[in-house]
Simulated assay, not measured.
Amino acid sequence: MNRRDDEVPVAPEAAQSWDIGPIVRELRAQRERWRTARQRRLTAGGREFPARAAIERILADLCGALFPMRLGPDDLQRESEDYYVGHTLDRALRALLGQVCLELGVASAEAVHHVRRFAEALPGIRALLDADVEAAFAGDPAARSVDEVLLCYPGVLAIIHHRLAHQLHGQGLALLARIVAEIAHAQTGIDIHPGARIGRSFFIDHGTGVVIGETAVIGDHVRLYQAVTLGARSFQTAIDGSLEKGLARHPVVEDDVVIYAGATILGRITIGRGSVIGGNVWLTHSVPPGSHVTQASTRQEQVNH
């Protein structure tokens, strides 16, 4: 076979030519410096923290168990649906137990309790997700069926992950919850912190670029469009200059609110029930129920001030 002019010949021994040993030693030294600086004690054994790849597999199983005929295997038959759900859920929960033990740092009855509590929440999560899917179908004239919505809409995938992550977060499993949220973020471009509280019948249309902060509170029947931000306006600091954690710093969005594409809503403000926030609005103050806020109205307000 003739070699192309732009190809560079590589000798067979090239694979053996890298001087790996010193690099491995330097990498080990850097790891040890990092761990020493953070007072991490090294222990024998395997992983010390949950594994993202394992959590991705758990999520796939949970989605299949929640929606077996749509998100389960392509050869699943209705008569074996319960068997599949039971088998898949058992596998997912056993794997989740291992990840919970890693987050807690011990294998204990506490970890079993966490997984049992999470499992018991799944029927309620499925009921919330049914309402979310219906809201997406009702809110998008392009949707032809609820099945299309569930199979294709990134906003629905994001809210499935969020409902699961929020349950973990509420149980104090913050790292597992955040990994679940970031898996959804990577897949959909929608960034929802697992601490955010989101009511029933929630719909994100299109979705790319949506950001919902940790302490945001969203009511029932709320609809967001792409590139909406529910963020913090400022960050309080402690005496030593470090950021204060966990303070309420994100918006409260009441029931039946619609927020159009590109709107940025910052700070612990309240968007009153039934309000409509127009596209590309920048809002840092509360608005009463039934408000209609547009770029033109915010510009007029600035002029009046």
Rank of each mutant, 00 (worst) to 15 (best):
N2W: 10
D6G: 10
A11L: 08
W18F: 08
I20G: 06
V24H: 01
R35K: 14
T36E: 15
R41E: 08
A44D: 04
A44W: 05
P50H: 02
A54W: 01
A54P: 06
A54Y: 08
I58Q: 05
L62E: 11
G72L: 08
D74P: 11
D75K: 00
D75F: 08
Q77M: 15
R78A: 13
D82F: 11
G86A: 14
H87N: 08
L93M: 10
L102R: 03
L104W: 13
V106R: 15
R116E: 12
A119E: 11
E120G: 07
L122N: 04
P123C: 04
G124C: 08
I125D: 08
R126T: 08
R126H: 12
L129P: 11
A136L: 06
A138K: 10
G139S: 09
P141C: 09
D147A: 10
V149K: 05
L150M: 02
L150Y: 07
V156G: 07
I159G: 02
I159P: 01
R163D: 12
A165Y: 03
L168Q: 03
H169C: 10
Q171N: 07
G172C: 06
L173V: 11
L176G: 01
V180T: 12
A181T: 13
A186P: 01
T188Y: 11
I192A: 00
H193D: 09
R197N: 12
I198R: 03
R200N: 07
S201H: 07
F202T: 05
F203H: 01
I204S: 05
H206G: 02
H206A: 09
G209N: 13
V210D: 01
I212A: 01
T215R: 09
V217T: 15
D220L: 07
L224H: 01
T229L: 02
T229F: 00
G231R: 01
R233D: 08
F235N: 05
F235H: 10
T237H: 02
I239G: 02
D240Q: 15
S242A: 13
L243D: 00
L247V: 13
R249P: 04
R249K: 00
E254I: 14
V258K: 02
Y260T: 03
Y260I: 05
Y260K: 11
G262E: 12
G262D: 10
A263L: 04
T264P: 03
T264G: 02
I265G: 05
L266K: 08
I269M: 00
I271L: 13
S275V: 09
S275C: 03
N280V: 15
V281D: 01
W282Q: 07
G290M: 06
V293N: 00
V293D: 00
R299L: 06
Q302P: 00
